[in-house]
């Protein structure tokens, strides 16, 4: 791993460098701005809008992604996350508003931007007609890298993706997790300044998810800027320094995961399950115990800063739930509060 670590650090420091300017020293500290007037945002969106014919996919959103940050788009299906990602990836024209990626306009400098991005799409689009190694090779060639450089990087990346023993295997028989790791490795072949991950762990089993999180966490440690979309709350909490919650093309909230939980939920949640059909009746007797009470078809949620204390109060009222769960508030609570509980599609 050391070589990748080193490479990625350099990439990070090189992020502000204009590739056309030669002879710049390679040991610039990330904090040293070469071009003072340039902001440190790798991505800057103002009023970013995307229409597909009449359908509004993204409805005028503002956000900034800073260098070295892991930034998340969290939202239900159809919230506009992938459309936003494709616009950042310079493969989908912006309908209205402004978008700057790495200080450039995707409409003008698409290929220049893409040269410095790593993209991991929602659907694996590995080249099925090529082997694992060949996928890395040809992808590097698309970036104009020489075979020597690619071979060197491919060896490291296969190790990083734990696919060394599958180097010459065709892509098709690989497991979902392996394909995903290969797609990530492929996205790193050009040592990108910015890695875009669209629902990186959707459809993977828990082991594969945790392995992937570990790999992404390592990249983050190395200073690679990550933009991740997900609808998994635990993933967002694990990986993102900062995130926006999207709903119906808009940004519903923005902040660090813990901040959002503090702002939109309570510290803890007490879940009470009563016999079927009696949730509402029982909830009515719990007035005043929690900051907020929510009645679901199968249970009652009490939002409180001290779940154990609330539990004691519940017992004092004389109610004995069938089961009780006392837990920390999660991003899921925030998410459901902001985007609602009804099914999206």
């Amino acid at each position: 791993m050391p070589a990748i670590v080193q490479g990625a650090r350099v990439v990070c420091s090189g992020a502000r460098l204009n590739p056309d300017e030669d002879e710049l020293p390679n040991n610039l500290h990330p904090g040293t701005s070469v071009n003072g007037s340039m902001s440190s945002s790798l991505v800057e969106a103002r009023g970013l809008t995307k229409y597909f014919d009449e359908l509004v996919a993204v409805d005028g959103i503002d956000f900034d992604v800073a260098e070295g940050e892991a930034f998340g788009f969290l939202g239900p299906n159809g919230a506009g996350k992938s459309s936003t990602m494709r616009m950042i990836g310079a493969v989908s024209p912006v309908t209205a508003g402004t978008l700057a990626v790495l200080g450039m306009d995707p409409a003008v400098d698409g290929p220049k931007i893409r040269a410095r991005l790593g993209v991991v799409p929602q659907e694996d689009n590995l080249d099925q007609e090529l082997s694992v190694y060949e996928n890395l090779l040809i992808y590097g060639r698309y970036f104009g890298l020489s075979k020597n450089v690619i071979d060197e990087r491919a060896a490291e990346l296969l190790q990083f993706a734990q696919l060394e023993d599958r180097r010459d295997s065709p892509v098709e028989p690989l497991s979902g997790g392996m394909k995903r790791r290969l797609t990530i490795a492929r996205g790193l072949i050009n040592q990108p300044d910015l890695l875009l991950l669209d629902e990186p762990t959707t459809g993977l089993d828990p082991q594969a998810r945790h392995l992937l999180w570990d790999r992404l966490y390592r990249l983050k440690q190395q200073g690679v800027t990550l933009i991740i979309t997900t609808h998994y709350m635990d993933e967002a909490e694990q990986l993102c320094d900062r995130l926006v919650i999207m709903d119906k093309g808009n940004i519903a909230a923005e902040g660090a995961p813990r901040d959002l939980i503090e702002r939109y939920s309570t510290r803890e949640v007490l879940e009470l399950r009563f016999p079927v059909g009696t949730q509402a009746v029982n909830a009515a007797r719990l007035d005043g115990i929690a900051k907020k009470t929510e009645v679901l078809p199968d249970r009652v949620l009490l939002y409180t800063d001290d779940a154990d204390f609330a539990h004691t109060k519940v017992l004092e009222v004389g109610l004995i739930p069938e089961s009780t769960v006392s837990r920390r508030s999660t991003l899921e609570d925030v998410f459901l509060r902001l985007t609602g509980r009804s099914l999206v599609d």
């Binding site: 710049l24 080249d127 040809i138 060639r141 890298l145 020489s146």
Partner: peptide
């Protein structure tokens, strides 16, 4: 190009054509 750029670890962009040749390579 890539060795000059590799020093700064910025990928060598294929900006000046030659893309069609990569398609043939594939």
């Amino acid at each position: 190009v890539s060795s000059t750029l590799a020093a700064r670890a910025v990928p060598a962009p294929v900006l000046a054509g030659g893309g069609a040749v990569r398609m043939l390579e594939r």
